[in-house]
Design a protein around this nucleic acid. Structure first.
Lengths: 354, 354
DNA sequence: CTGTTAGCGCGTTCAA
DNA sequence: TTGAACGCGCTAACAG
């Protein structure tokens, strides 16, 4: 029923070994022989059996890209960029030559699913794994992930971190590309302080996430440097990285402290929800309250008013992670690179009313 | 170095077959034996060899989800929903039991990459494939995709279409869930007409895409029914489904016909760009120009003013596609279901100035 | 309920 | 430059 290497060999009147060599292009094969084999492949519509090939060769062409939320462009942009580098441009023949199969796996932010996917990829003997976005900070989970990654690396899988802080013992990892969330958060709040804001609310991301913590730390660093201490807890509300959470948390913030003059959101999506809440309360942006986000997703510049935020080079980072996973680029010194975050001042922030 | 089934069997003092049976849970195994085996698995940190298992069983647990643009929430929402149904909730053990490996593949809208991914999935003997979003209408490519899907189906892969029109000869496909793009497009334009608009510009998607064509056809149906004909070409500009294209195309539209009182965009993302262009030209929404989108992505309700659009139940459709791919749900009669689109009237549309 | 046997389809030695 | 032979690790009969 299904055509195998042997069928192709028979038709081309060579040995299976020769067909294999032609297909993999690793060994010298006479041009005329190769010709015959390729014709037989086309005639028979032969498709390599991936599992058999992976079993024999003890490697596979699968590359996994783990994301926390596939519906969030933050991850989509990184994953898409990585996939482009990994999948290659395609040869247009649709015949699928030496390409890797770059696939993205959606953990939904769940530690269990993250581990499950890693196991599944380990089971498939994946050629590489790219972990994107912030990590969950639960020590047990971190240890489990580290152990799993070590085992993957051990089995020859290349592990790359993208937008995620390095592992405690980074040995298992080819490279870690970390965003400067702390620095970005600090500069964003410094910007607000320099405009004259003092009562600044913070809509933070979920607890126990590195991204959440680092951005918040940057914010508090700036606040502390300005002598603003003591109100941290009251002026911070945590919630998921989504629009709805931004809306609800901002309402809560305004209830706790009606006098806030600025709201900093964990990311742009949350900022959108925050803005909606502020408007629904009859307040204007930025005249009554300034709003700022983080990430500079494509829609942020189109918000009204345009959103002040911190730009992360998501596409570039994803592409680089993809190249590192493919071994097409040499890792940074020490395997760790910090990726700069750039403050983007736009219309949603202005001096507070006096 | 790497531990195999045989090692586990030796340690548990059973035969390899028994270990296999415990792991796959398909055959009755005595509780005490199972216990011993599972302990050995844990002790040895054994991970099943996916390729070997797939080779022997002639099936794999890989499920591919193809999307046109992974950075677009339109696809992310569908893919995420599908993945949730397919991957299962996970058992929390991180041990990866009977789960399928649901992976998303980003074609970037390129026909070649679409075919390449299908070949790669065929090579892996994927258990199922879900194709999401509009198809490219080039006949040669459609024929190639149909042929490929037929071969996949032949080899036992379940093929599901989600948000994509049925194949000409739908036999290869388990089910096709098609959005009512035409009806949605028609109702949207009828809404504008009922407000009194007559000069309506249309920022369409890329040429040769089913989604583009169907939405545009719905629009023109409504226009024609209102007796508005002759200006179709002049009032339509095509471009990619992105923010930038919406911006540029709208500028072009305003140049061609400064008197437009409404702009309909191919989707919400494009509508965002269109809105920005309109504002940059010093015009107000909706007082000077009404704007409408399509899809009702999460950010659309937060646009200012909130975007009038057509809601597509992306999450529900994706989840259903996932269940169909798993055989957890019986296909609709004839294998084809049309999914309704709901008009969402919000602040971005209003009667034209007189 | 459990063990034995025989491949699954391919990559890779080793010879020729 | 090519062919023959072996084994990758596992599942699926078939016995028992």
């Amino acid at each position: 029923m299904t055509v195998t290497l042997a069928d192709v060999a028979a038709r081309a009147r060579v040995s299976p070994a020769t067909v294999s060599r032609v297909l993999n292009g690793n060994y010298p094969v006479a041009a005329s022989t190769r010709e015959r084999v390729l014709r037989a492949v086309d005639d028979l519509d032969y498709v390599l059996n991936g599992p058999a090939s992976s079993l024999a060769a003890a490697t596979s062409d699968l590359v996994g890209i783990l994301v926390n939320d596939i519906a969030d462009p933050f991850f989509g942009i990184m994953a898409g960029a990585a996939q482009t580098e990994i999948g290659g441009p395609g040869d247009g023949s649709g015949r699928a030559g030496g390409e890797k199969l770059a696939v993205v796996c959606n953990t939904g932010g769940s530690p269990e699913r993250e581990l499950t996917y890693l196991t599944l990829l380990q089971r498939q003997r994946a050629a590489a794994v790219v972990l994107t976005g912030g990590a969950v900070e639960d020590p047990a989970h971190q240890a489990a992930v580290s152990a799993k990654l070590a085992k993957l690396a051990d089995a020859g899988t290349r592990v790359v971190l993208c937008g995620r802080p390095p592992l405690p013992d980074g040995e298992a990892v080819v490279a870690a590309l970390a965003f400067d969330n702390r620095g970005g958060g600090r500069r964003l709040t410094e910007h607000l302080l320099s405009l004259g804001h003092r009562r600044i609310g913070y809509v933070a991301g979920p607890l126990e996430r590195t991204t959440t913590r680092h951005r918040l730390e940057g914010h508090r660093e700036a606040m502390r440097a300005a002598g603003l201490v003591g109100d941290e807890e009251r002026l911070t509300v945590h919630g998921p990285y989504d629009r709805r959470s931004g809306y609800d948390a901002t309402l809560e913030l305004l209830r706790r402290e009606p006098e806030v003059t600025a709201v900093v959101a964990a990311n742009d999506t949350v900022a959108l929800g925050a803005s909606a809440a502020i408007r629904d309360r009859g307040l204007r942006i930025p005249e009554d309250i300034s709003v700022a986000g983080f990430d500079d997703l494509p829609f942020s510049v189109d918000a009204v008013p345009a959103l002040t935020t911190v730009r992360l080079p998501l596409f570039e980072a994803g592409a680089r992670a993809g190249r590192l996973a493919m071994g097409k680029e040499t890792p940074p010194p020490g395997g760790i690179a910090t990726i700069a975050a750039e403050l983007m001042v736009r219309g949603s922030t202005a001096p507070p009313r006096v």
